[in-house]
Design a protein around this nucleic acid. Structure first.
Length: 206
DNA sequence: TAAAAGATCCCCT
DNA sequence: GGGGATCTTTTAT
């Protein structure tokens, strides 16, 4: 990244999950470990709203899997999906309020070689991180990363000066059956790195 | 103890 | 557009 970047403070994650989700758009995930530096810009997310959201893993209370969601904000909640993929969320709201934002797609910025090695099926760089399982794979997330601190840990979220879209595209979440009508998926409308194949149901009025 | 569902991806038609 | 891969977690018996 050519511009100066700064870490997001933990307070960034303490607001309403829908607001945090839209503000995470265009933020950058930076992973520095094993002597590798990877970076990717978040272009698509989904909000999961804890006890009020039947589609959230945390809806029925804490379990071994979802424990991180009940912890403090600004940490990675990583879970194993469909027997083969690792998906990564950012925990939102104070400890005890199990809200989270799933990262669904990102634009690769740094570490192309490593990402291509980890994603041999990707025909083009557009497909490296386009989808939550692909994002987890390209960035090297595994179950060992569940609970990692996204503020001070090896995989951080930073602001490199690119503002979130003024009017993010909004639509229903993907791959769920409960609360499937809630328009809690947000993406950067002009980005070609989004996984979205469905059109937006509306555009945010502010 | 068993069965079903699951915040997905990939290949085939 | 549809189905298989693959296995953990959750829910039902």
């Amino acid at each position: 990244m050519s511009r100066a970047s700064r870490r997001l403070p933990r307070s960034f994650y303490e607001k309403d999950v829908l607001e945090v989700a839209t503000k995470l758009l265009n933020k950058v995930v930076v992973s520095e470990r094993d002597g590798l530096r990877l970076a990717a810009r978040i272009v698509e997310v989904e909000a999961y709203r804890g006890a009020e959201d039947e589609a959230a893993h945390s809806f029925r209370g804490p379990t071994k899997r979802n424990a991180t969601m009940f912890g403090p904000p600004g940490h990675w909640y990583v879970y194993f999906s469909y027997g083969m993929h690792w998906c990564a969320n950012l925990v939102v709201a104070p400890a005890g309020t199990p809200h989270a934002v799933l990262v669904r797609a990102a634009e690769p910025l740094e570490g192309f070689e490593v990402m291509r090695e980890r994603r041999p099926k990707a025909r083009t760089d557009r497909d490296l991180l386009r989808g939550p399982g692909r994002f987890g794979s390209a960035l090297g997330f595994t179950g060992a990363d569940d609970g990692l601190d996204a503020v001070n840990g090896p995989i951080r979220v930073v602001d490199d000066g690119v503002a979130p879209p003024e009017r993010p595209a909004i639509g229903p979440r993907v791959g769920i059956t409960k609360a499937a009508e809630e328009p809690w998926r947000f993406w950067v409308p002009e980005s070609r790195f989004v996984s979205a194949t469905r059109r937006a149901t509306n555009i945010r009025p502010d």
